[in-house]
Computed example of a mutant assay.
Amino acid sequence: MEITPENFDAATGIRVHPDQEFAVEPVMQSLAEAYVHPPGVAWPRLIMDGDRPVGFLMAFLDIDWNGRGDRSLIRSGLWRLNIAAAEQGCGYGRFAVESVAAELRRRGATEMYVTWHEGEHGPEDFYLRLGFRKTGEKSEGETVGVLALD
């Protein structure tokens, strides 16, 4: 669901487990980043279960991965994923990844990228279970993963 004035407080109220805070920025920071990038780069969404907010995701769309204007490194993927602490383990994270994958396929993408912090309480196992594979790259100190969308 798009972020609107009506659901803004619900979106910014999403909190991950305290021991996961090192691995993902708060929703407020994500929304600020979406605002300062050119239109169409960020795709922020509130994840709902009926009328209950359970998470937040933000995709990145067609970014110049290395910032050098190399068209061969234009990528799209999952930028942020925050599932509320009490809602984890219920399939909402998988739903979020599948939702971003469906949107990227609709836009013609054949791959979906994600980055993650390694370490205890990090999301690496989650992404690997969903089929992402490590590329061997790092982005701002985070591991880069890719998922084929075919």
Rank of each mutant, 00 (worst) to 15 (best):
C90S: 13
F60C: 07
P44D: 02
I83E: 09
A109P: 13
I74Y: 08
V24I: 05
L46Y: 07
L147I: 03
A84W: 06
G122T: 02
H117D: 14
A42Y: 00
G145S: 01
G55M: 00
S139Q: 15
E118I: 06
V144T: 03
F132V: 03
A102T: 12
P53I: 01
L81N: 01
V16M: 11
T135P: 07
D62T: 06
V16G: 09
V146A: 08
G77Y: 02
A96N: 04
G67Q: 01
L78R: 08
L128K: 15
D19K: 13
Q88S: 02
E21G: 08
E124P: 12
R45Y: 09
A148I: 15
H17E: 15
Y113A: 04
V36G: 15
N66H: 12
G141H: 03
L78M: 02
V114G: 00
R106A: 04
G40I: 00
D19V: 15
S30K: 15
V146M: 11
W65P: 06
I47F: 08
R129D: 03
D150T: 13
H37F: 06
T12D: 00
A101Q: 13
L78W: 03
S139L: 14
H37S: 12
A85M: 11
E120D: 15
A96Q: 06
T12N: 12
E98S: 13
Y127V: 02
L61P: 06
A23Y: 05
V36N: 14
E120C: 12
D125C: 06
G91N: 07
L130C: 05
Y113H: 02
G131N: 00
R75E: 02
G69Y: 11
Q88P: 10
E111T: 05
G93I: 00
L149I: 11
S139W: 13
A23G: 00
S30M: 10
L57G: 05
D9L: 13
F126N: 05
S76T: 01
A42D: 03
Y127P: 02
P44M: 00
P38D: 12
D9I: 07
V54C: 09
C90K: 07
H121C: 13
P18S: 04
L149C: 10
S30T: 11
R94K: 14
V27G: 00
Q29I: 15
V97G: 01
Y92N: 10
V97F: 04
H117R: 11
D64A: 01
E142P: 12
T143W: 06
D150G: 10
L81K: 04
